[in-house]
Design a protein around this nucleic acid. Structure first.
Lengths: 208, 208, 208, 208
DNA sequence: GATGAATGAGATTTCATTCAT
DNA sequence: AATGAATGAAATCTCATTCAT
């Protein structure tokens, strides 16, 4: 609630940062331009000087936010050649992302909920453009061709892993209550192992 | 946009139905009381007569909506003793639910996004209360004890299946674009088989 | 400045009346919605309830205003068969109109000044639709055919009379200063005779 | 909309010129300082550096504009001794002025509409100071004294001619629609003759 | 002379909610 | 149960003007 943005940062950055918080907490409709300005310690008119409208400010926030996230994802992933490690790393990255940039979860959720969202399109483009998915696809493809993995549908498999990993973080407020998860920190650590285990076992060719 | 509710239905029902649409499309903050009243073909004051406030109307809508859904879930699930069938049926039920009550997805997403939501709590209660999870838990437990399944963490396994199934529906607007899903109908059908296959393979004890 | 509208009048009427004053004094851009609401002794939101926007309120005001004026013009004119009397009556009506509905002059002036005005079109339609001009045209035509008037261009003649009569009222703030008109009341009385005299002399066939 | 002012012209001139356009189109209340600056291709602050306020800029524009116009009027008029020619020339000058400096009409109209305008006073002074009216008055006076013209009220006559000539240009958006003037160019040419004819016939002593 | 950023006051409009009937 | 009109508070956005450089 109090002004959180670094006052030495540029005005534009302070606004973006304050807006990110506000949009994360309240969504675009619930967000209040007044509050954003106050948090950013700028005159309300400055918002409009820099971003023209609440809507465009929102877009700027989301795009900047996801660009950063996607970049981090990409740089984390590509280092790994070993698929087992890569999966673990992916799950770990999801967890860290959620922890370090918590605003991204509600923002993403609300975009998923918005039937007119053109930002989903944009986000998909950013993810696709980063090459993450094609790297993953290649690795899985190799594993299947080499006979290490069963003849699974690769696309479905990728989506399964993503939903198990990221999907949990999105659904956590509900899942945690239904399954009585009390210490999320611990749970997430265990989950990382559990989903890699499930996935690999589900996918690998059985001996004999 | 046009009044959709059956005008012969009771006023209360017409309002609930119009409100469900509105809240699904716009969320609670984006929803407009005027629009709801117009869609329901009632005077705005009537809406307050029956529901006291936008907030309470929202709660009424959500609770009624989820009660129905949970009830349907439960009735579908409990019939099955065979776990393989039950999993397939669960995935199928998720798919049908999304198709027949499409408003539920955005509403759920926005509740997940709302940090102060006490409705998540309520929904979790409804799900827990329905006994679905405990039935599932028992079955998995038996399977592990009997040695058919590996010694997995049951809770994580359940969550993994749910996220693979329901999680996809929540994340579809993004996932479909990233992985270029064009015919969702077909994709969902294939997915049902894929996740049951992955799950069972991932979970079963391997033959020597 | 003080609330002038009859508080017993209907809300809509009070708003129209207050708005007429405001628009006459300040023009649409200079007008303030706050002031209109205060003058009409209504809540600002009422303006929007009844008229949707400042722009539409303005249109409503102008249309209502001119309809009244045109109607008065028409009823005054058509009584006269004698053309001399009709001209005098027209000049008199212009003078009375300006006196009794003073707001109409600035409003008309500003519409004339507005290149995008579609209200000028509308006003022209209202005038044309009232039949005033065609009555006038017929009478002049008869006078020319009968040989009482010279073979003048009727359209130019009509416009000449109108500009001499109404045009003075529009240009009065300037004309009065240039020609040092101090008592406008007297001046207007004299002018009525002067323009009828000039017009008839200018138009009539000269006795050999 | 695009910057129209000659960029090689001095800053001050560019601002004046852009402002003239803007004020002509929108009036002082509708004019936007931003737009003027953009059209003049200068920084907004520059505008304040040179003119101190929107109001003063407006005054500067109007005064410069009308000084030019009055000067042109005067130089055109005084050459003529023959009154018939002088009248024709006056009408012609009005027409040219409107064509060459079209912004002047809306500006004048809005000043006429503004009850607090002190610019009307100033314009009247400029016109009076130029001597146009006194020249005209003398000539008419001579004509009456010499017996060529009837004993008309000279002031009314002058105003009648001015309103017939200039008044048409002010009221053209309305008049053209009411009387279905489609080719204004042609109409204005014919009008010049028509009003001189009407005026002289209206004013001259009839033979016997 | 010139600029980009900043500001305060206020403009129009919106919206959940209530009142009188 | 039902309505049209009314309301207050607040929302978004605008705009003339000024400051720091």
């Amino acid at each position: 609630m109090s002004p959180v943005s670094d006052p030495s940062a540029g005005t534009r950055e302070r606004i973006i940062s304050a807006a990110r918080e506000e949009f994360a907490q309240f969504g675009i409709d619930g967000a209040r331009v007044d509050r954003i300005a106050r948090k950013a310690a700028v005159n309300k008119a400055m918002l409009y000087y820099h971003f023209h409208s609440k809507e465009l400010l929102y877009e700027a926030v989301v795009k900047e936010f996801f660009l950063g996230v996607v970049e981090r994802l990409r740089s984390h992933i590509e280092a790994f050649e070993n698929l087992e490690q890569a999966l673990a790393e992916l799950a770990e990255t999801h967890a860290q992302m959620v922890k370090q940039a918590p605003g991204i979860v509600p923002i993403l959720l609300r975009e998923l909920a918005n039937p007119q969202s053109n930002l989903c399109e944009w986000i998909a483009g950013a993810i696709g453009g980063s090459g993450i998915t094609s790297i993953a696809e290649q690795r899985l493809d190799e594993a299947v061709r080499s006979g290490r993995f069963r003849k699974i549908e690769i696309r479905q498999a990728m989506i399964s892993f993503i939903t198990m990993s990221l999907g949990y973080h999105l659904m956590a407020p509900l899942v945690d209550r239904v399954w009585n998860v009390t210490d999320r920190e611990v749970f997430v650590r265990e989950r990382k192992a559990a989903i890699v285990d499930l996935f690999l076992n589900g996918v690998k060719v059985k001996p004999i």
